[in-house]
Design a protein around this nucleic acid. Structure first.
Lengths: 351, 351
DNA sequence: AGGTACCGTGGGAGCGCTCCCACAAGTGAT
DNA sequence: ATCACTTGTGGGAGCGCTCCCACGGTACCT
């Protein structure tokens, strides 16, 4: 099984050279076959493939990376602490979509948490060393320096969730505005009259857009927007609790709440229950994300679904295209590659 | 800012050579400084460090990997589809612990899903190419060929959750037996008399041990174990539902259930509620894992906590030790590096 | 004074690959 | 027959690093 010729220290694995010798061809030819170049005759290709199979040859990625200046790896960068990442189902959902799509390619996925300064420092070093071909960025706040760093280093990157309406980097987002709009419309349709909202961190563009959607839905239906019905949250459960507490104090008569995320809705639900409000009888509740939490909540939560799988797929597609594209970055940046995918309201017992 | 001398194609990044020239020393010396070798004079070290800082030098990992035959990366391998991985909080919890611990080192984390045959094929290739220095394996079933492959390729690996009592690979596990034992003891202490259990897949050693703990607790208290109170689950919510349905049909008088995981407990809860059983009044419920689900459940679920963070930490420590250890694998394997960490019962309203 | 030891250092040799130039052989137009 | 082009191929050069050998210098023994 193991066999043949002088072997290097690297665990006795065969090299290109050895495959070439075995197949009776040159090194370059084997390289061409491995990389699927069309400029190889059928006979030669067959011979090389046989040698590869016999020797169990697997290319050395480090050597390839060094010579070709690429790594066949992309980084999934989370500019948050691990805790936050795993507490927020949105992140894992995106990661799941990305993983599924990437499984079909030769690319490898690196998971990088950059939740504190030291980690960010390390990440910057890491990126400067060009250890990945591209970067997937989730949950980027408006003032995050990371995207600019990426641009400056000319590393292909795709953002999940734009930072603003005129995002410079390619991005994939869901239609937060329309999603929020439909949620509020739904509540209005159910005859609710005092509809509050709990927002996410408003320096996250998506949270802002959900708020815009909330406002627009009310205005479109001919209602005035009462700004005291808008309670700021921060995407955490605790934030949801706080916001709901405030809301209840200011508006005891509130009969519906649109929360900017399922996690915040969960927090709100706790407060509502403690206050003796029944869901949906007294207060209707709608979330956003349609994560596992929504299905498990009691009662199950009506929520705005985002096509996460598709978003993951789209991010990878965009990124791979970006990586393959070798025009200068300046030329690329002119084309706006912004994808906005539709949302869908999933109605459950909470509304 | 960018400056000095001829630059290679690799994005104008400085090389060791250039740093050496700048510091007025040889290439070897710079390498020694970078790698923290003690055999460098203080003066030289300072000079080199200055040059590194001025040039913004970052070592090229591909070159290093090629020359030194190491990659500074480890893989977190999940032999399950993404879906399963994210549905089971245990996995993400371990990953979180690992991520936190690894953040303190220079190692990078690769996330690899090997949930179907194609993926496994790719993984095997990947491992054969020695693209990682070590592997972390979660959720390994008794008959999984992956551990043997790892052993054969002499790739350092650590398993989360032993496959059997005499696991060959280094492993980190929690004390499933004691955890289950304490859970059942707790139920007995609450005066419950008809205590059922829903097991995980019994080809997972941990699930088996939890069942053993259940049995032992009953016997220790002088009770006979009624095997018809043991319902097989598979760690999924649906499995929990099925098992609970069976249990309820066979033993309408059941007044306590110990589920082998929180997810299964969630499934059981649904069925209990639909059957009109109140928790904990009619039926007490205890889970395992103390995951987020337990805290969010209604009522909050009593559950057996595993020290996940610590387990992640321990896995990394073991793996790094394994990687650093360059004795032949055969010598290593004799020492059993099996870590079993204690569990703790977290009492909540469900029992 | 000579010998031995060690320290800090420079730089050659290689790691296994890709890139690319050169060249042989074949093809078709002139 | 000649030239121009194409196609397939071999192999040199080089990617940026680590490893290691060899060298000069200092320190301490005989």
């Amino acid at each position: 099984m193991a066999a043949h010729g002088a072997r290097s220290r690297s665990g006795g694995r065969p090299t290109l050279e050895e495959v070439a010798a075995r197949a009776g061809v040159g090194r370059g030819t084997v390289s061409r076959v491995i990389n699927g170049s069309p400029r190889v005759s059928e006979a030669t290709r067959t011979a090389v493939e046989a040698a590869v199979a016999e020797l169990g040859y697997v290319p050395n990625t480090a050597a390839r990376a060094l010579a070709a200046n690429r790594t066949d790896a992309i980084a999934f960068v989370v500019p948050e602490p691990e805790t936050r990442f795993f507490a927020e189902p949105y992140f894992s959902d995106v990661l799941r979509g990305v993983g599924a799509e990437l499984g079909e390619t030769e690319m490898q996925l690196l998971l990088i948490f950059a939740g504190n300064d030291r980690r960010r420092q390390r990440l910057a070093q890491y990126l400067a060393a060009h250890r990945v071909d591209g970067v997937l960025l989730v949950s980027v706040h408006a003032d995050d320096p990371l995207p600019d760093l990426l641009t400056q280093l000319e590393i292909p990157a795709v953002i999940s969730g734009r930072r603003s309406a005129d995002e410079a980097l390619p991005s994939v987002d869901s239609d937060n505005f329309a999603g929020a709009h439909s949620a509020v419309e739904h509540l209005l349709g159910r005859g609710r009259t005092c509809i509050a909202t709990i927002t996410g961190r408003l320096d996250v563009y998506g949270a802002q857009r959900r708020l815009d959607g909330y406002r627009a839905a009310l205005t479109d239906a001919g209602h005035r927007v009462d700004e005291s019905l808008v309670a700021p949250g921060d995407f955490t459960e605790e934030g949801g609790r706080r916001a709901m507490t405030e809301l209840l104090a200011a508006h005891p008569g509130v009969d519906a709440v649109f929360a900017g995320s399922d996690v915040m809705a969960a927090g709100a639900r706790q407060v509502l229950r403690e206050a003796g409000r029944r869901i949906p009888d007294d207060v209707a509740l709608v979330g956003f994300d349609d994560s596992a939490i929504a299905r498990h909540m009691d009662p199950p939560l009506t929520s705005v679904r985002q096509p996460i799988e598709e978003m993951g797929r789209a991010m990878i597609d965009l990124l791979l295209a970006e990586i393959a594209d070798d025009r200068p970055a300046s030329a690329r940046r002119l084309e706006h590659r912004q994808l906005v995918l539709p949302t869908e309201l999933v109605e459950r017992a909470s509304s």
